Structure formats: structure tokens, C-alpha cells
Simulated scan of single mutants.
Amino acid sequence: MAFHSFKERVMISHDLQAAKGPLLNLLSTILMALSAEFMALSNIGGIPGFQLLFLLRLTQFLTVVVFLPCFCPKLVGENMRQNVTLILSTVVNAVANTLMYLSFTHAAPGIAFGIVQGTTPLFTTCIGFIILNETVTLIPCCGILISVVGVVLVGIGMGHQGVDSTQKLVVSILLPLAAALTRAPGMVLSRAVLKDLSGLTIMLYLSSFGTVVQCILTHSIETPVWTMSAQTAGYVAGLGLSQSLATLAMLGVLDVEKAVIAVAMGTLVVPITILLDYFFLSKVPGLLKWVGLSLVVLGTVVLSIYTWWKHRQDEKHKKLLEKLDFLPLLDDEN
């Protein structure tokens, strides 16, 4: 009885290990959606976009400083290649995050995420194959395709609502599209860095670099607003904390999943953000949007289940090989 109980606990442990990527992705998408809403609400509260990004990076930097003594990760690579990749990852991810979060101040977060998540998987697939030689099999491709179709339907549904001006429409499309173009190589480079360095190291470089750059930009381009209501201050604090934890969770996903799989599973952020748009910004989804959201969820579920199943099969195969390796030793002892 005890043996079976132990065996069941081992199987549950293996199942949880196989589900690590999808579970971390779910956590990351929820936190990312929350950070998008906090960005929009903070901007509505009168805080300029670049200043919000400065406060976000500062919060992220302080969060990393708290965690560093606990884990003591390597802060530099072992060779020039690792350090160059780390620097490139820092710069590209800083640009991508800036473009993405600025898009939340020009369009509803659901619209911005719809454009970003609808285009990033394709870009990531191409760049991931070129840099990391990562390929995608048929079932993940189907899951990605279903999610992309859903995102397109969400975008069409949002387009039917109209916008205030053509200029606003162009900006609300171009900013997320530019974010997707830079986010794809940023994700691939982050995964490449994670092969040699810790996610905390990536966050340290990204937050310190971003804090300095955003501080310069906010004083050069905008007029900073340092006096704010308690409610707006709460939104700003929520923005920094949720984005910091979302980044840590996403780096955890990239540590165990291919870049394109991590990006594709992140498509779940679209329906979550649309729902939060309703609660926080009173944006009511129409019928076409609900159809699109259903497809996004379906595609993400297909991809997540396949990812868990693939890891589970790999774990079983690994255990079988280990068992076979021990068999000759047991025969020799007999």
C-alpha cells in the first residue's frame, strides 16, 4: 500500500513537472494582463507614458535586488558570446516592452495585445529557427493557427467599433505591430541567454538599463508628474509589481519551452485582457469578439495540453532509459 502511495506521489510529481511550462504561462498571462490594465488606468490618472515606464523599470530593479541575495546567480557570462547575447537581449527586450506598454496608452489593452499576440508567433517561429534551429510540429502549428484566427476575429470585431481619428487608428496599430517585430527576437534571445545564465540576471540587466534610459526619456520628452492621488499611486505600484512577476514567470516558461511555444501559449493573455477591459475600462465585447476569444482559448488549450503530454512522454522515455541502463549492473551483481 505504501509502495503504491509512493508511486502515485512520484507520478503526480512528474505530471506537475511536465505542466510547469503551461502553469507558469497561465500565471504570466494573468499578471501581464493586469499590468496592461494598470498601465492604462495610470495613464488615465494623468501620468505620462514614459514616466510610467520609468517607474515600472525602477520597481522591477528593486524587486530583482531583493531576490539577488537569495539566489546569487552569475552576473556575467563565461565568454564573449554569452555577454554579447545578454546585451543584445537587454536592448531588444527593452525596446519591445517600451513599444508594447506605450501601445496600452493609445489603444485598449485588449486591442494592443490582440495585434501583438496575433503576429508575434509567426515572427518568433522564423527567428527561432534561424538562431536556435527550433522547429514546430503539426499539432502546435494547428494550435497556433487556431489562436491566430481567433486574434484576427477579435481585431476585426474591435475595428467595427470605430476610432476617434485616422491618426489614432494608425498609432494604435503601428505601435503594437512594432512591439511584435521586436518582441519576437527578444524572446528568442532571452531563451538563448537562459541556456547559460539565470532569469534574474536577465531581469537585472533589463531593469537597470531600462531605469536609466526611461529616466532620461521622461525628462527629455515629457513633463513628469510626481504628485498623484492615492488611487493612481496604487495603479502605478500594481503596474510595477505585476509586470515584474510576469517577467519572472515568462522567463521560467522560456527556460523549459521553445520560444515559439512560449509566445503561442501567451496568446491566452488576449481573452484575459478583454475580460479585464470590461471590468476596469467598461469595454464590452461584441459577438465577433466572443467568437474570436473562444478560438484563442481553444488554440491555447490545444497547445498547452500537447506541451504537457510531450513533456510527460519525454519524462517516461527518460525513466525507461535509466531503468535499462541499470539492468546490466543488476545482472552482474547476481
Rank of each mutant, 00 (worst) to 15 (best):
I261W: 00
G252K: 10
L268D: 02
Q214W: 08
F209D: 12
L251H: 03
H219P: 11
V212Y: 08
Q231Y: 15
G238Q: 13
S207P: 00
A262I: 06
T223V: 14
Y235D: 14
L204G: 03
L245T: 06
E222S: 06
Y205M: 12
L217P: 03
L200R: 01
A259S: 10
Q214M: 15
L251Y: 07
G252T: 06
G210K: 01
A246C: 10
S220F: 11
E222T: 00
S229I: 07
T247A: 14
L245R: 13
A233C: 12
W226F: 08
S242V: 10
T232S: 09
S207K: 04
S244R: 03
I261K: 02
T247P: 11
L217A: 03
V260M: 06
L239R: 12
L241F: 04
L206W: 11
Q243P: 10
G234I: 14
I261E: 00
A249Y: 13
L248F: 15
G266Q: 11
W226V: 06
Q243K: 15
K258V: 09
T211K: 03
A262N: 07
E257H: 00
T232N: 05
H219T: 11
V253H: 08
L206M: 14
A259K: 00
T218A: 03
T227D: 07
G210W: 00
T223S: 13
T211M: 01
F209R: 07
A237C: 14
P224S: 04
V263K: 07
Y205G: 02
Q243N: 15
H219R: 08
A262G: 06
W226K: 08
I216G: 10
L217C: 12
S242A: 07
I216N: 05
Y235T: 09
V260T: 11
V236F: 03
T232P: 03
P224N: 10
T232W: 00
S229D: 15
T201H: 04
L241R: 02
W226P: 05
V212K: 14
M228R: 10
G210L: 04
G210F: 04
T267R: 08
Y235R: 04
V256D: 01
Y205P: 01
A246I: 06
T247L: 15
V256M: 00
